[in-house]
Design a protein around this nucleic acid. Structure first.
Lengths: 117, 117
DNA sequence: TTTCGATATGTCAACAAAAACATAACGATT
DNA sequence: AATCGTTATGTTTTTGTTGACATATCGAAA
């Protein structure tokens, strides 16, 4: 139990009444990357995951929350692009704050219990 | 995003320098059940998991922490039994407190961000 | 009206984690 | 020394999740 080698990890996510995930760290990263890159496929490439699975994860959240996360622009010379809806932007900013604050608190508690001075 | 239907979930665990799990909710429950029932096999039966996998999970933690979690009594008319070492008892009580306090804090933060009055 | 890259969606393969199966060894009690 | 339920451990199946493959559609611009 050495302070330098052991680490606390936490995971935080939001579920619906069926315990299905509505939002978590994965969704957060996906949406942030889409916002920055401008499309699902570019985001998938950057995150080194398949377009298919990224698309599927987004759809799941959309179905479960009943809100669309992306404004899709299909076709065009550039093939198309996607941007976040206002709902998605809210989800991102809220969850980011949530995650940050929970992780900070968790680390404090961890140190207080495991390494009191 | 309805207060009555969405829920925050958190997971907390401790890892070593290789990110391998040293202790988590699963180990906690396993050790608590062994302590109460008096043996690995009884605990496995109660938790509806195989003896083999429970035994393997305990061994992993023992190998990674370098501490033995159980005092094993093999053989005898009753077949044998196992009890927790002092190290294991400490791990259980510490982690239980950790988990509880982190989850409480997480719920507070969740409500503050998602359902401010 | 042809092109091009992105969205949309079904299906199938691959890999990992957990469970199931199978024995061997152990030792206090009878 | 025979018994019994437990510990110990290797091997094999099952299962579940992730990624790979395949294909159709879309529509602005050339």
């Amino acid at each position: 139990m050495d302070k330098d080698t052991i680490t606390l990890r936490t995971k935080t996510w939001i579920v619906d009444e069926n315990k299905d995930t509505l939002f978590g760290a994965g969704q957060l990263k996906i949406l942030e990357t889409i916002e920055r890159t401008g499309s699902i496929s570019a985001a998938a490439k950057e995150m080194k995951m398949g377009y298919r699975s990224m698309w599927g994860r987004i759809r799941k959240v959309e179905q479960r929350t009943g809100k669309s996360l992306l404004i899709r622009h299909k076709g065009g010379s550039d093939g198309g692009r996607s941007e976040l809806t206002e709902d998605a932007k809210l989800m991102v900013s809220r969850f980011k704050a949530l995650q940050q604050r929970i992780d900070d608190a968790a680390q404090d508690i961890f140190h207080a219990i495991y390494f009191p001075e």
